[in-house]
Computed example of a mutant assay.
Amino acid sequence: MTNPLVRRLEHYDQISSEERLLLEGITTHVVSIPAGTDAVQEGQRPGVSTLLLDGHCARYNLTEDGHRRITALHIAGDFVDLHGFILRKMDHSVGALTDCAFACVDHAVVKEITRSHPHITRLFWLSTLVDAAVHRQWLAISHASAAKRAAHLFCELLVRKRTVGLATGDSYYLPITQVDLGDALSISKVHMSRTMKELRAKGLITWEEDRLTIPDWDAISDFANFDPTYLSLSKEPR
Rank of each mutant, 00 (worst) to 15 (best):
W207I: 02
D183H: 15
L166F: 03
R8V: 01
V48S: 08
R20A: 05
A58D: 02
A103F: 13
L22S: 06
S127N: 10
L185R: 02
R59G: 15
R69H: 13
T71N: 11
G95W: 01
V134N: 00
A108T: 14
G165T: 10
H56C: 03
T2I: 09
I15W: 10
A133P: 05
V134G: 00
P228F: 00
L212H: 05
L53S: 10
V40T: 08
A150T: 10
R68T: 14
L231C: 07
I15D: 07
T121R: 01
D65Y: 08
A147W: 13
K148L: 04
I26H: 05
L212M: 13
T37V: 14
V130M: 10
P228Y: 00
T2C: 03
R45F: 10
L51S: 09
N225Y: 03
Q41V: 11
A184N: 02
M1Q: 04
R238H: 11
Y60E: 11
H29K: 15
V6E: 07
R136L: 01
G36C: 09
D222W: 02
R122Y: 03
S17W: 11
V164I: 13
T168S: 13
H74N: 14
L53Q: 12
Y12D: 04
D54Q: 15
S116F: 02
R211S: 07
T27S: 15
W125S: 12
V105K: 06
R7G: 01
K197P: 02
T98N: 09
A76I: 05
L174T: 00
V40F: 00
H29P: 02
A58I: 04
E236D: 08
L22G: 09
P34E: 09
S193E: 11
I26F: 06
R122W: 04
A219S: 14
L185F: 11
P237E: 08
L174Q: 00
L166M: 11
H135A: 15
R115A: 03
P237C: 09
W125D: 07
S193A: 15
E10T: 03
R59F: 05
V80A: 04
Y173A: 03
A35Q: 15
G55D: 04
L212T: 03
S234G: 12
R162K: 15
T114Y: 15
Y230W: 05
L52D: 12
F79C: 07
D227P: 02
L139Y: 02
V105T: 10
V94G: 05
T37Q: 14
L233G: 02
L174S: 00
D13E: 07
T195V: 13
A72D: 05
L129A: 09
W217S: 07
R238C: 06
Q178K: 12
A101S: 15
H135F: 07
R160N: 04
S93G: 11
C104P: 00
